Amino acid sequence: MGARIKELPAKLPKSFDKPDEPWYQYLTLDLIWKVLGYSLFHPWVSWIIVLCLRAQLTPYDALEMKIAMVWAFLMSAIGIFGIVSEKIAYGNPREVDLSEEVIVVTGGVEGLGSLIAEVYGMRNANICVLDTKKVEYEEAEEKGILYYECDVGDAKQVEAVAAEIVEDLGPPTILINNAGIVQTKSILDSTAEDVEKTFRTNTLSHFNTIRTLLPYMLRESRGTIVTVSSVLGHLGAANLSAYTASKAALYALHASVRAEIAQHPEGAEIKTILVTPGQMSTKMFAGVKTPSRFLAPVIAPVDIAKEVIKMIEKGESGEIAAPLYSQYVAFLGILPVGIQQLVRRWSGIDKAIERAGLVQKKAVSEKNG
């Protein structure tokens, strides 16, 4: 008798729960780019066009044949360059066997972390979640996840929980640093406690977990560290000073950790992944509107989760950035400052939190005190 399939409760969405919207709302630059990537810009498809022309007995010196062959060679060269570039940057992928991996997700009770944890739970992986939110035993058992109530901003709590994880599941080999909070306050309305709390959760937690769990990975000579940052770490935004600064720090931390692991003799099989999503449809930024659904669509957490899981299981290092603009947002910094300012005005990035009605203000008595 085969293993019993785990039954999970599911509530399917009802069509009348959502207002009717035009079909073109789903047409985005990301979708067009993805389709082109699998068609016109794909080397294999480019050579198929050449073969089709030859099947029609098109001579090699015909203009259309010359254009098709030049295009096919160009797409092939770009593809080969990309493969070589990634090989130089990240080396060979490592072998990943989920039955031998121990996965730790911080901030995995809600949002992106929850999706990743639940996928691994359904696949009977050795998965645990570190979060300040408490999860009932029955729910944890149903999801196949071990939950540890832990403030990852507290180094001592992380060290204590790490010892429990080793005893319960074994040495951690995959760390997904996802924990994050946001306080939508201007720098004048924020307090020292607000800033400290944001940095403890968004930045110091990464130091605590990496410092604690990386030694286990080095002893095992394998591992993967996932750093979840944000495109706002590149851009900054009004009323999000603490959040954007805490996420910007993760870019430098990721680069430094990569460099240090590369210098360690046991670090060849330890991979690093940087995740820099744009606005996701989570509670964190509910109500915030992007300047354009076409150019800057709101990303579903499941899309980021799929990419993270795929890269982890392929044993690769790399960067995950979505939507498309987040892959090139760093180029904004090399543009003339006047153009940068015009882009910020057009995008409405510095007005988005205010327009969504999310700006938190100090009490009047506190301001006058």
Rank of each mutant, 00 (worst) to 15 (best):
A10Y: 03
K6R: 13
E220T: 11
E366T: 11
R258N: 10
V337D: 09
A259H: 11
G369Y: 03
M65R: 04
A62E: 01
P13R: 06
F73N: 02
D61I: 00
V302H: 08
P9H: 03
V228R: 10
L342Q: 12
S39V: 05
T191H: 12
A330L: 05
L98M: 14
S85F: 11
L188C: 13
E319T: 11
A305C: 03
G318P: 06
T227S: 09
E95F: 13
N368F: 05
A10T: 02
E142P: 11
I273L: 06
G82M: 14
A55V: 00
G233K: 02
A160V: 09
N368E: 13
L29K: 09
N126K: 15
Q56W: 04
L74K: 01
G170E: 09
Y148F: 15
L295G: 00
D194S: 13
E86P: 00
T106H: 10
G82V: 10
Q279N: 01
I165S: 07
N124M: 15
L218R: 15
Q183H: 13
V231E: 14
F331Q: 03
A245Q: 05
Q25K: 10
E86A: 14
A255M: 07
L232W: 13
E260H: 03
P215Y: 15
T184P: 01
L250M: 02
Y243N: 02
M280H: 01
S76V: 02
L342H: 06
V96K: 06
F41I: 04
E269A: 14
G338M: 03
I116G: 10
G338Y: 08
V364R: 06
R344M: 04
